[in-house]
């Protein structure tokens, strides 16, 4: 089902990659079930082709990208650390292109201050969206970034992982990856990207504002109200006892590149 991609390979990394088996079997994707092991099973028949990714809002040239268009960019591999708000992390080789590439193509107006994202809404294919209770969050899943965050070279649109097109449970066919923010910011199976002038609503913030902020930058100093964010369990490979618990770094270790975006901001308040 997944096909091989052609891309510029990442230069090697010192960090142990999380095994492909774990990347594709331990997923938070409530649209396909609440348990981490559910999405792989429930998303198995998910149709990603045809796909429509709409790019509109305050842009000069609104566009609609079809499935094949998603792979028409200069694809490159990026090995990123993914830090989940639940205090576990992985190291994942994504394939894709900077979000800025696609935004430049549409020509974002100067009046646009934020980028808003939306996941596919298709209750027929996504059992989680069918249930009235839906796992306690509203659908479709929405996310957002400030314009400077969206344009940052680290902010990435992934169309593949481990050299192949994305598996459905990883957000096929197209997802966001923002490595210095908690994983829930990296919205999956995107159908709409919109340039807007006001801070857009975000799903987990709507569900529990005291626990999940708009920025959601990885920050060991700001604990989740129910658990510490000072450390994380790095999931790599192997069974019980093979993970290491390591210190969590500010901005997930990408501070050198992104701390400047938040100069003068009180990150305890804007968590």
């Amino acid at each position: 089902l997944q096909r091989e991609l052609e891309f510029a390979k990442a230069t090697s990394t010192q960090q142990t990659l999380t095994s492909e088996a774990k990347v594709t079997s331990y997923n938070n994707f409530y649209e396909f079930g609440l348990g981490k092991n559910d999405p792989r099973e429930n998303a198995a028949g998910f149709r990603v082709d045809p796909w429509q990714l709409q790019l509109d809002g305050l842009v000069d040239q609104p566009q609609t990208l079809g499935y094949e268009d998603l792979f028409g960019f200069d694809l490159e591999e990026r090995i990123y650390r993914l830090r989940c708000v639940e205090a576990w992390s992985m190291v994942i080789p994504w394939v894709g292109f900077p979000l800025a590439d696609i935004l430049k193509r549409a020509g974002v107006n100067s009046s646009a201050k934020y980028i808003a994202f939306e996941t596919l809404f298709d209750p027929k294919q996504m059992p989680g969206q069918r249930s009235r209770l839906g796992g306690g969050i509203r659908y479709p899943y929405v996310e957002g970034l400030r314009m400077d965050e969206a344009m940052h070279p680290l902010t990435f649109i992934a169309v593949g992982v481990y050299g192949k097109t994305l598996a459905p449970q990883n957000g096929a066919p197209v997802r966001l990856v923002v490595p210095w923010k908690y994983g829930f910011k990296s919205i999956k199976s995107i159908t709409r990207i919109q340039a807007v002038d006001k801070q857009p609503p975000t799903t987990w913030n709507l569900a529990a504002a005291n626990e999940y902020g708009f920025y959601a930058n990885v920050n060991p100093e700001v604990d989740h109200p129910r658990w510490s964010q000072a450390t994380e369990r790095r999931i790599t490979r192997g069974g019980l006892g093979s993970d290491e618990r390591i210190a969590t770094l500010p901005f997930n270790g990408y501070g050198e590149q992104v701390a400047g975006l938040y100069q003068g901001m009180d990150l305890q308040r804007f968590y």
């Binding site: 594709t24 331990y26 999931i235 192997g238």
Partner: peptide
């Protein structure tokens, strides 16, 4: 516990267990 040691109990054996 045995399945967790052998990594055959979900993507993250710790959470599964």
């Amino acid at each position: 516990y045995w399945s967790a040691l052998n990594d055959t109990i979900g993507g993250d054996p710790v959470e599964s267990l």
